[in-house]
Amino acid sequence: MAISINGQDYPLPADPRTSLLDFLRREAGLTGTKKGCDHGQCGACTVLVGGVRINSCLSLAVTHEGDEVTTIEGLGTLAAPGAMQAAFVAHDGFQCGYCTPGQICSATAMLQEIAAGWPSDATEDLDAAPALTDAEIRERMSGNLCRCGAYPNIVAAIRDVAGAEA
């Protein structure tokens, strides 16, 4: 009866109403994941479950028994930031920073989706390997809003990491 978060087990919440987002912040004490709209529209709460990105606000924690959740805290530390975290810093991929954990989790999963050949609405040929164009990045990141409008630098950070991985 536990959820694994960044490799550590946490007991399931007593109240089934607890969203995965509230569980992360209140019960696991991992406040890196942010609550924006709480209705799946802004993407600030994006985390990875089994490597797949989801909105943690629209998922009940009790449904994640046995799942492996990765949050922004699991992608790196201040002393040893992950590649996407370092790229967001290097490219100023934020101003206020509130949407950033969700952006970074989302971007991390997005590069895996492209590597797996998943098409998007911006993909011209459904059968070809998707190219990492700005249009592709913008479409694939459209579930993550940034009120500061740091989008050009977010795209640059993602391109930087993708280039390093390619």
Partner: peptide
């Protein structure tokens, strides 16, 4: 399907 929602929502 790809024209709807976001990747996070389509994954769930």
């Amino acid at each position: 399907i790809l024209a709807g929602a976001t990747q996070q929502l389509r994954n769930k």
